[in-house]
Amino acid sequence: MSATPSPRLALRGNPRLGLALGTLTLLVALVALLIVTPQLAERAGASDFQARLLAPTTDYWFGTDVLGRDLLARTLQGLALSLWVGAAAALLGTLIALGLAALACLDRRADAVVGLLVDSVLGLPHLILLMLIAFALGGGTQAVIIAVALTHWPSLTRVLRAELLQLQQADYVRLSRRFGKSRGFVIWHHLLPALLPHCLVGGLLLFPHAILHEAALTFLGFGLSPGQPAIGVLLAESMRYLSAGYWWLGVFPGLGLLLLVLAFDRLGNALRRLLTPHEAQQ
């Protein structure tokens, strides 16, 4: 299979370019969101009792809530908040997973302990554990981040542990030691670079979970305080008015959340495909 020069093909129908454009669009949208939201704070907080529960109009694209606040501004603020919470929780969760996976590979007993930990956390219902931790920590942004991080590491830990165990047995890793390379060299030059793509993809796929669970926690009243315009708070408020026909209160924040989650899920999966050697060329 020699790679002789051949005519370059047009960029049309190039899946990798599609992924790049998608990522770029998403990034631009997120940066715009983060820039815009601080300026929307006033608008989101300002209540106007002349304009209570207005259906979407040209002035209020997403309508207004029961206190006459602009729902568009509040949704965008909620998404920005979710973004921060999700990113922090996903990062924390990935670090926990990496640490535990490394620990599991040290010796047999540590591996058994980590395995037990993974199984027991996976065995408990997610949401109940989330609520317990958030409640114990007293609620608020930090509590939510910690609770989400503490419940979202097990599956990634499993993946990383399996990968590390396999790598340690790999011929090229064993040979490296026989060439006189130190343990540190092997970890730094062979193991970590091989794990990095898994961490990246795993973290990115943790992100939508983290956002969804943050929203769920807040919706149930165990998360962010009702004063913060979080998506979960918006959705919880909307429940009281949905049956009265004020559909926009639930639909727009919900759709925003769905879009954000889907975007990150798609991005994570595309990246995973790209980093899988035999799928990368297709």
Binding site: M1, S2, A3, T4, P5, S6, P7, R8, L9, L11, N14, R16, L17, A20, A280, Q281
Partner: peptide, 12 residues
């Protein structure tokens, strides 16, 4: 196949 990041070429 990809040559570099974006360009695809045909490898016989």
């Amino acid at each position: 196949r990809y040559r570099g990041l974006w360009q695809r070429e045909a490898v016989p």
